[in-house]
Amino acid sequence: MSNSELKMANPGAVGLAGFALTTFVLNVANAGLVPAALFAALPLGLFYGGLAQFIAGVLEFRTGNTFGMVAFTGYGSFWMALAALIYSPAWGWMPKDALGAALGVTLIAWTIFTVVMTYLSFMSKNRTVQIIFVLLSLLFILLVIAHYTESTAIKIFAGYEGIATAISAWYGMFEIIKAQFSTK
């Protein structure tokens, strides 16, 4: 079989899976359900939410899906950068007292990126993608507010909202995989 005859799988499934699982684990910690889940979220952020999602974005390039490419390489990079940022003081990359300010500006920047991506998602007819991005925008807004107000209540609410975001992404993954079986 030649390269032109090879059918490429939809990389969006693994991109959504990595995003969903990592988002779920981090927000279980944010919601206060299992605070130690943060220790699992950071390695997941490097590898599944990060690297696997980034690779899915690169593969979206091959399919011609610019939105998927930007979303998956963007959020894959987000997870890797977030994990590195949080580990930075321990690695000697920044003073520990600089972490709060660095995290705050990072959350603001990703909120802006996410709101733009949310707007663009409405140019698609895929309601699941739209729901994922609306929930993700709300999550980032809540995380920014929680960060700057130091409100535990808002952080916990954001955690539960993040769990809902993860579930919506898992549903998106489910739709992609299910569609593969319905076309055979």
Rank of each mutant, 00 (worst) to 15 (best):
Lys96His: 12
Ala41Ile: 04
Met69Phe: 14
Ala71Gly: 05
Val34Tyr: 03
Phe113Ser: 09
Asn30Ile: 01
Met69Gly: 10
Leu46Lys: 00
Phe24Asn: 02
Gly64Gln: 13
Val34Glu: 00
Ile163Asp: 03
Ala109Glu: 07
Thr106Ile: 10
Thr63Gln: 13
Lys155Thr: 02
Leu82Ser: 14
Ala146Ser: 09
Gly104Phe: 10
Thr118Tyr: 13
Ile163His: 05
Leu51Gln: 05
Ile131Ser: 06
Ala31Glu: 00
Tyr171Val: 12
Trp170Arg: 06
Leu16Arg: 02
Ala158Asp: 04
Ala98Glu: 14
Gln53Thr: 04
Tyr148Leu: 05
Thr114Lys: 08
Ile176Val: 15
Ala166Trp: 02
Met94Phe: 09
Ala56His: 06
Arg62Met: 13
Thr128Leu: 13
Thr66Leu: 15
Ala83Trp: 12
Leu139Arg: 04
Lys96Gln: 12
Val134Ser: 07
Asn27Met: 02
Ile86Lys: 14
Thr183Gln: 14
Ala83Gln: 09
Gly45Trp: 04
Trp170Ala: 11
Tyr87Pro: 04
Leu51Phe: 15
Leu136Asn: 09
Leu51Tyr: 12
Met94Leu: 12
Lys184His: 10
Phe113His: 08
Thr183His: 11
Met1Pro: 07
Ile167Arg: 06
Thr183Cys: 07
Leu136Arg: 07
Val34Arg: 00
Met117Glu: 14
Met94Pro: 11
Leu103Pro: 01
Ser88Lys: 07
Pro89Arg: 11
Val116Ile: 15
Leu107Asp: 08
Phe133Ala: 05
Ser151Ala: 09
Leu44Ile: 03
Gly15Ile: 00
Glu150Leu: 00
Phe72Ser: 00
Leu85Ala: 14
Ala31Asp: 00
Leu26Tyr: 03
Thr118Leu: 09
Leu107Pro: 01
Thr165Gly: 06
Val70Lys: 12
Thr118Lys: 05
Ala153His: 05
Ile55His: 11
Ser182Met: 12
Leu138Met: 10
Gly49Pro: 00
Val70Met: 15
Glu5Ser: 10
Ala102Asn: 13
Ser77Ala: 15
Lys155Asn: 07
Ala169Thr: 08
Ser88Leu: 08
Thr183Arg: 12
Ile131Arg: 09
